[in-house]
């Protein structure tokens, strides 16, 4: 058991980040190109593909939260989908029952998910990460019957059907394009937020907790405080993603948020890349497209692929696709100064 505290090459090792000025410039350039492409894409693609890209962004925001917890703080959650569902239902109930304008549902959903995350994180975080995995798995399984029970609020098994947000006339956008841009703005906003958070004192504290708890504690990092906070933040980001999900789909039902969603999200972030900022985007692409493509082979094919990939990634590339890309960039020979 004592061995579990020692850190190893083959785990949540920090991503192979390149800190040279040239690489940083290269990085910003790539990011700018990507952003231009992201803005340009909805005007070129058919509505269905725009919808799919919107969902990639929604998943990316949820994975950003999961990455904060798993990749940066080294804690594991098997119930991230539950907080996604809490956000989605908060938004749906507020829109349906309280007739709240949809943009206002996002901060409320974020706050609700944050508080529930904080409440559940306190008992689970007093112990090692393993118990967090247990508790979160139990929450994910428990949530579905709970949502079905409070029928007058949640609509029971039938769920709630809502009107999708309509684009304002001055934009001249179609509905799918409008939703895409909302998701893009939320995604960019949350990414900037998390990126600056990680560069701060908090980010360093989280990394210290992940890499060596005892050493972190000796350096004055309050373990339970940062672990609980990381859990609550990750829940909050899932809640934000959930509320955007509700706007985009216009429908919530308990069966959309089974434990499979949580497990797919974990698979997404592991394959996408733990502990890197591009991991959530790659993970979002993975969660969105792998099931829809492989489902044609067999209903069970996505699961088989997810399972094998998770195990393979943990063996050969613990930093996921993003980490692989990072390593490749590192290999590009640079000019001698």
């Amino acid at each position: 058991m004592t061995e579990s505290t020692k850190t190893d090459e083959k785990t949540s090792a920090p991503p192979a980040t390149v800190k040279t000025p040239a690489a940083t410039r290269w990085r910003w350039g790539a990011l700018a190109v990507l952003l231009v492409l992201a803005v340009y894409a909805p005007f070129q693609l058919a509505p269905f593909y725009v919808f799919q890209l919107t969902m990639v962004l929604v998943y990316a925001v949820a994975l950003l939260g999961l990455n904060l917890l798993v990749g940066h703080a080294g804690q594991i959650s098997l119930g991230h989908g539950a907080f996604f569902a809490i956000g989605a239902y908060t938004a749906a109930i507020l829109m349906e029952r309280a007739a709240l304008p949809y943009p206002l549902t996002l901060p409320v959903a974020a706050a609700v998910a944050f508080l529930i995350g904080l409440g559940l994180g306190v008992p689970a975080m007093r112990l090692r990460g393993l118990y967090l995995a247990l508790v979160t798995l139990a929450i994910a399984i428990f949530l579905v019957p709970l949502l079905k029970r409070f029928e007058e609020l949640t609509g029971g098994s039938m769920g709630l059907t809502l009107a999708k947000p309509q684009p304002p006339a001055w934009t001249g956008l179609a509905e799918d394009q409008w939703l895409y841009f909302i998701a893009l703005i939320v995604a960019v906003g949350t990414f900037l937020l998390v990126a600056s958070l990680l560069r701060s004192r908090v980010g360093r504290a989280l990394h210290a907790v992940r890499d060596n708890e005892i050493a972190a504690e000796v350096m004055g990092v309050r373990l339970s405080f940062y672990k609980t906070l990381a859990f609550a933040w990750s829940a909050m980001l899932a809640g934000v993603a959930g509320s955007v999900y509700t706007w985009v789909i216009g429908f919530v039902s308990p069966d959309s948020f089974t434990v499979n969603l949580s497990i797919n999200l974990l698979a997404g972030i592991v394959v996408g890349g733990l502990g890197s900022l591009s991991g959530p985007v790659l993970g979002g692409l993975f969660v969105m497209f792998v099931p829809s493509i492989s489902q044609d082979i067999n209903d069970a094919a996505p699961g088989v692929i997810f399972g094998l990939l998770i195990i393979a990634v943990m063996y050969v590339a613990p930093t996921g696709l993003a980490g692989l890309a990072g390593r490749l960039i590192k290999k590009i020979p640079r000019k001698k100064e």
Partner: peptide
Amino acid sequence: APELTIVIVTVGLFIF
């Protein structure tokens, strides 16, 4: 390997 890695591997096994 640390707990996180092993838990993720058994979850992968679960899905598979």
